[in-house]
């Protein structure tokens, strides 16, 4: 560790002067080390052969900063990489912007930067540019991070994010249980005094996604089920009113711990945020093959088919309930859990 427990972020760390330079060279360059960042120019110079690129951005304000299974840094890298990966792009470069509250612990910042570097390395993505601002105590809550990402998008995957080819009979696949991230973060908040034996599912999905894309045909759409959860992903798809979507409550994996907390606090797992779950819409005839490929990957072991696209009820998503009834799955209104990512 570079910093000790007592070291704090000072307003000067964001001034652009000596303290800023020190922070960049001692902390960010040390962990994010790569040829492009080391040039320390105002802009990063990138070379890409791809004709098409994907570009995305996301901001992270999770509270608390550290939770079982991750921290805000891991989340900030995984979130942006996953947004690129589900559009079919191969993530290449990230930027990161830090907004830090005066007095924040430098050793905690170091832990966060280190976990960002670890995730970026796993995904073989370079963090090539960044920015640090420090605001006076009380003007932000500890630390916010923004990351933007660029990936190269092979021409054959351009249609993936447009969801143009979805039709009746297509199967809906998810790579594991819902709500682990939300409930882990919630349990890490002292205010609720919930003890849940659970870790966040926060993970980079690009490898799993590329194994599926490179070894199968028939994936028609992908989206990571983050804020708003599975329900929101499906509702937004059905909104075009071309088809309806049916999901089966009995097939949707939800851990007992998550169900228990949902029962207690009145949450619906379908709407809980996930940080390592991808929803795929795949052609009926390819579904089993895709499922097999997914199950071979550590992040896809619990993959399963949870529903299908239907020609009835265009524009609606509905749930075949555990007891054999049916109910509509509507768009989330209001905020179920603030500052979850």
């Amino acid at each position: 560790m570079i910093y000790s427990e007592d070291d704090r972020v000072l307003l000067g760390h964001g001034s652009g002067g000596i303290l800023t330079s020190d922070l960049i060279s001692q902390l960010f360059l040390h962990y994010f080390k790569n040829d492009i960042l080391e040039e320390l120019s105002d802009s990063a110079f990138l070379q890409m052969k791809s004709k098409k690129i994907s570009f995305t951005t996301d901001s992270f304000v999770v509270d608390p900063l550290f939770f079982p299974g991750g921290d805000i840094g891991k989340l900030a890298v995984c979130g942006t990489i996953n947004d690129l990966a589900v559009s079919g792009a191969k993530p290449m470069f990230l930027s990161c912007g830090f907004i830090i509250e005066e007095g924040f612990s430098l050793s905690q910042l170091e832990k966060i930067v280190r976990s960002m570097a670890e995730e970026a390395e796993k995904a073989q993505v370079k963090i090539v540019t960044g920015d640090t601002k420090v605001v006076a105590k009380g003007q932000c809550d500890k630390l916010f991070i923004n990351t933007s990402g660029i990936g190269k998008l092979p021409a054959k995957y351009i249609g993936l994010s447009k969801a143009e080819y979805i039709c009746k009979g297509d199967k809906i696949i998810i790579n594991g249980s819902l709500g682990d991230h939300s409930i882990s973060v919630l349990s890490a908040r002292n205010s609720l005094k919930i003890q849940a034996n659970l870790v966040s599912d926060c993970a980079i999905l690009n490898e799993l996604i590329y194994q599926v894309l490179d070894n199968s045909r028939g994936v028609k759409f992908m989206r990571d089920a983050t804020r708003g959860g599975l329900a929101t992903v499906l509702y937004e798809l059905a909104e075009n009113k071309k088809y309806g979507i049916a999901i089966d409550e009995n097939s949707i994996p939800v851990k007992d711990t998550v169900r228990g907390v949902c029962e207690l606090l009145g949450f619906d797992p379908l709407y809980l945020a996930n940080e390592g779950k991808v929803v795929m819409i795949v052609a009926e005839e390819s579904a089993n093959e895709i499922l097999k490929i997914m199950k071979r990957h550590p992040l896809g072991k619990e993959s399963c088919i949870i529903g299908e696209v239907s020609e009835t009820n265009p524009g609606l998503v509905w749930l075949n309930t555990q007891i054999g009834g049916k109910r509509m799955v509507d768009k989330l209104s209001g905020e179920q859990l603030p500052r979850i990512c």
Binding site: L319, T321, Q322, G324, G325, K326, R327
Partner: peptide, 9 residues
């Protein structure tokens, strides 16, 4: 009643 779809059953 609504959540479990009991009305229509």
């Amino acid at each position: 009643i609504h959540k479990f779809g009991i009305v229509d059953m």
